[in-house]
């Protein structure tokens, strides 16, 4: 279980975290979702005892990240944003090294990493620097898991990894969760939110909301429409000028629109259809709501 309570952190003039608080329950996959620069990595470093918060308190399984950091370091698995592998050591040497560093052996916990590391075994003698992004990610995860941590913290594990590997990675996390490991994962990709049990949306060092993805989507207040014409760029300008348009922004090949009125106005040459909001829509809504306050 991870508890963060009103955490503040400044880097000189920059306020990286402005009072962040949430609770991760034991045995769940918790996603910390927000764009680059939102404060995700800073928060991870505080939770992994690498840096200390200016104010506020964080605990992991009841252990304080400042005073009990030595105990915490024994029970967490951490995968930093940059895959922290020794590029000039081979796959096997990396895994063995991290196993010894955490006072265990590869054999002892092989069962836990077998599924992940098994895919890498044909490349056991290859230098880590020569691996693809997806393989590096698997090796880094194996290294973070080799001491069977109670809490696994993954900082942007899917950044720079191909979609297939990303999908595989999510299923791996599911299996780890079934083994009783609490998982905290951060990502800038909103579409990964649905794989988490609960998520926290973070922007500019503040948490926008914490809930399960379904509940966050259900709490979206407006009816959302997708609009498309032969010239979306001009359409965006046109819609933003209309007084009955509440909000309008681009999302893929469609524009996302909400209206102030119940009825949808008819527009020439424009295809408009109701759509289910996604986590990204909720993020944009919550963020703009906060900015208008």
């Amino acid at each position: 279980m991870i508890v963060a309570d009103n955490i503040h952190k400044n880097y000189r003039e920059v306020e990286a975290l402005k009072g962040v608080g949430f609770t991760v329950n034991a045995g769940e996959i918790f996603g910390l979702i927000g764009p680059d620069g939102a404060g995700k990595t800073t928060l991870f470093r505080i939770l992994t005892t690498l840096i200390t918060a200016d104010s506020g308190r964080a605990t992991i399984d009841g252990l304080d990240t400042v005073t009990d950091f030595e105990q915490i370091r024994k029970r967490i698995g951490y995968m930093p944003g940059k895959f922290a592998l020794y590029q000039d050591l081979t796959v096997e040497e990396n895994l063995k090294f991290y196993a010894t560093v955490f006072n265990t052996t590869v054999e002892e916990n092989y069962e836990l990493v077998r599924e992940i590391y098994g895919q890498l075994e044909p490349f056991a003698n290859r230098r880590a620097g020569a691996l693809s992004g997806g393989m590096k990610q698997k090796l880094a995860l194996s290294c973070a898991l080799i001491h069977r941590p109670a809490v696994l913290m993954l900082d942007e594990p899917t950044t720079g990894v191909d979609p297939v590997s990303r999908g595989e990675f999510q299923s791996m996390l599911e299996r780890l969760k079934r083994q009783g490991i609490t998982i905290l994962i951060s990502t800038p990709y909103m579409d990964e939110a649905n794989r988490c049990d609960r998520i926290a949306l973070i922007q500019n060092g503040k948490i926008l909301t914490v809930d399960s993805p379904d509940k966050i989507i259900a709490s979206y207040p407006d009816s959302l429409y997708a609009a498309k014409s032969d010239n979306n760029y001009r359409l965006l300008g046109r819609l933003n000028e209309r007084p009955d348009v509440k909000r309008c922004y681009v999302s893929g090949e469609y524009l996302r629109v909400t209206f102030n009125t119940e009825a949808v106005p008819a527009l020439d040459g424009v295809e408009i259809k109701p759509v289910q909001p996604t986590v990204e829509d909720c993020f944009i809504y919550l963020n703009s709501k906060r900015n208008n306050l």
Binding site: R45, T48, T49, L50, E70, R73, K74, I76, Y78, P80, G81, K82, F83, A84, L85, Y86, Q87, Y98, V101, F102, N103, C143, A144
Partner: peptide, 13 residues
């Protein structure tokens, strides 16, 4: 620079 220090610090070493 490579971030491995982060992991070493997080480890019980």
């Amino acid at each position: 620079e490579t971030g491995t220090m982060e992991l070493l610090l997080v480890s019980p070493v």
